[in-house]
Design a protein around this nucleic acid. Structure first.
Lengths: 235, 235
DNA sequence: GCAAAAGTGTTGTTGGTACACCCATGG
DNA sequence: CCATGGGTGTACCAACAACACTTTTGC
């Protein structure tokens, strides 16, 4: 009996469907946002949801998630990190759908969002002002936010979220926002510079009032090296 | 056209199969082992593999992985942590199978392993002496080992791997083994005790030669509290 | 010249690291 | 009494935390 069930398993029509979801965060002047789509069709038409969809037979999960994101929002990003796989049997009341969630970081200013396929609308939402979401998408998003906040303790962050050239205060504000609290400017700068991932440029920018700031950029090589090695960052 | 394809998606026969795998580590007197099964049937009969199998329609991923582990090895554990989802289209040459890998820790001495269903044999393998494995199971195992080693920097470890009562030297040896290097006995003890997760018992044990050691046990409440909060542990 | 933001150093404290000898038991 | 593993304290140093004033620009 066991023998038969085992042999059959591989041919058995399992009828579990597999989807992917892309939680994409953006940062702009002190606000962390997440990209959501409004469903165009029934069921749940008009509900906000995390972009995503079904995996095709011949594509990898990474290809699937990048494709769905592109199709639904117009955004093409090449690096999404796997977050978690959600597989509760009743998470989608219609049928059994297991979803592999990914997350990524971008600068919203560098992309043009564009509703397509099953999205009626695409919009950035401040993560502190989220609408109610489809199925278990709130739980997925919550996990992604927690991961994002956790990341800054063991990895440098900012490269994907800031402009190529930026004043130091932008980086500081990003950390302040992610941590949700003020940080000591002097200590932060000291620590950041000691990591050797920033190159100070010979260029200044003025924001209209106040002393103009020197611009920095990330030193990609050292940034990604450090990211791989892991850091212990405690501010 | 888009409309139709979207509406169809949910009914479309996707024919991707979903499986789960359980990487179970054990520790015993200075050795970290992993539990593997030998496949009983073709194809790949006789190959060693990580225990696992297909997810059933009505069960969650966690239920599936616990069930498969129980069926194939006789081991029932209630906590397996999700590791990663492997979905390369060609990882199983027969058909498209996406697998959600989990990992867990146990004390081998507390369980009796027992080959069943599609396992011909079940065996603990020292992680430094692994056989060649089925498909991409080596990559899965490698990721699990990396995660296990990484865990000790941000979580206390040991509760699941050691006996209820243990001499301090057992804990020290566990860390030495996981880290793959010697640690300073005095500093390690100082740091461990300062975490407040150990209760010293009024009981001694003698290993035959040498001064008898005091026994300790983990204070479950504080251990799991700390585990949740996360620690930064750098020895 | 004043408002606004950028830039900068020092000191006390804490926690990490390095290091060597005595203790309790069994044989 | 010796071999074996268990148990302990101190001193140095590096890293973190706290803290306030000066500089440069626009208006």
């Amino acid at each position: 009996m066991l023998y038969i069930s085992v042999l059959n398993t591989h041919k058995m029509h399992q009828s579990i469907q597999l989807s992917v979801d892309a939680v994409v965060f953006g940062y702009e002047s002190g606000t962390i946002s997440v990209l959501l789509i409004k469903r165009k069709y029934e069921p749940f038409k008009g509900q906000w949801a995390i972009p995503g969809g079904f995996v095709l037979e011949e594509e990898s999960l990474e290809e699937a998630v990048a494709r769905e994101l592109k199709e639904e929002t117009g955004i093409a990003i090449n690096y999404l990190e796997q977050l978690y796989t959600f597989g509760h049997p009743k998470r989608d009341p219609r049928s059994r759908v297991v979803s592999v969630a990914y997350f990524g970081l971008i600068k919203p200013s560098a992309f043009k969002i564009l509703a397509a396929t099953d999205a009626e609308e695409v919009q950035w939402f401040n993560i502190t002002e989220l609408p109610s979401l489809f199925f278990d998408h709130e739980a997925i998003l919550q996990m992604a936010i927690t991961r994002l906040q956790g990341k800054i303790t063991y990895e440098p962050i900012g490269f994907e979220l800031l402009d190529t050239k930026f004043p130091f205060s932008d980086l500081e504000k990003l950390y302040t926002t992610l941590l949700g609290r003020a940080i000591d400017r002097r200590n932060f700068r000291k620590k950041m510079l000691s990591l050797n991932i920033l190159d100070e440029l010979d260029e200044k920018v003025s924001k209209g009032s106040g002393r103009p700031a020197n611009l920095f950029k990330f030193n990609n090589k050292r940034y990604f090296k450090l990211k791989k090695e892991g850091i212990i960052f405690e501010i």
